[in-house]
Design a protein around this nucleic acid. Structure first.
Lengths: 167, 167
DNA sequence: CGCCAATCCTACCAACGAGGTCGGAGATGA
DNA sequence: TCATCTCCGACCTCGTTGGTAGGATTGGCG
């Protein structure tokens, strides 16, 4: 399992906000999103707090308040979202995230044995692959994808999968 | 955290086996590996059992027994290893692994709301990125990497990282 | 002004999986 | 026979995660 369901819910929440993206328009209440996606409201509150702290989302309090995206969906890449929720995308606990956000490699097993920690090479590659895919995917893309019919999405996903396999 | 430390230990174990890869030669005892890598022996026993079940490793019991690779390091890719240990590389619990090994997408949230589950697109891409990197890396590569001096590996890793960022 | 609908915020809880241990039972060479 | 190793299953403990409870704030609206 690469990501937690917190990330799943967070992405789903962002997509739902993207669907109602009226530029300066009305905010969407969490309750509406929770109902639309059948997700626990109380838990969503905690998740959206992370998104807000990361500056991906704005809020207006009080009655008829809610949340809206602080950027257009096309300007939001999924590494922003996942990083805000997961804190860091590290394959292993060797990886300690640094101040600049890019994870540095600090492997404890290195000094013990005389030789280098070969697994670093592998985990670094994997992490690079993940971050690459996350950065390539924009929220606008997911929003557009969610507008299709479920039948159409199946074949679309199949194509993606094939593209990946013989890439 | 993408992978568990079980995968970390497993890869480390495989690398250590690869280092002593005499073609038909003597087997390496787990005790030796545990000592070399400063890993808990009892836990390694459970890990290597998975590797054996996956056919990546052979064993000879009794005194002077141990484990050896069942293929040459160049023929072993890391997706074999990780899959054997992790069971499945799925970004989310939506993903249920199928009989053929390739994970199918079964998302419960799909039928609820009228629209498609957009997160599937994202997770599928991420998973593809991970599997791609794993399949590209052979055990031989890691073994060769571990033979260098720690000083040399630092710069080598740095180059990898740079390659990834502006790729 | 007073109600209601929202965001906020903190503490709390239960369940699960993961890392790790223990003890023993089979094999096998010296 | 004895030491050494693989095997195997039952345990245990601890951190994290998903999820809840309950309340403060804030602000629109009648």
């Amino acid at each position: 399992m690469i990501f937690t369901t917190k990330a799943e819910y967070g992405v789903r929440l962002m997509v739902e906000l993207g669907r109602q993206a009226k530029p300066g328009g009305a905010a969407t209440s969490l309750k509406a999103i929770a109902a639309a996606e059948a997700l626990p409201l109380a838990y969503l509150e905690r998740i959206v707090a992370l998104l807000k702290k990361a500056g991906l989302v704005e809020s207006t309090r009080g009655a008829h308040g809610g949340y809206r995206l602080s950027r257009t969906p096309a300007e939001i890449t999924m590494d922003d979202v996942v990083l805000a929720l997961e804190g860091t995308v590290a394959p292993m606990n060797c990886f300690v995230d640094d101040t600049d956000g890019s994870s540095r490699v600090l492997c404890s097993h290195e000094s013990d044995s005389g030789h280098a920690c070969a697994t670093k090479l592998l985990w670094l590659r994997v992490q690079g692959g993940v971050m690459e895919k996350l950065a390539q995917t924009t929220l606008a893309e997911l929003v557009e994808f969610s507008h299709r019919e479920p039948a159409a999405t199946a074949s679309a996903l199949k194509n993606e999968q094939e593209d990946l396999t013989h890439a």
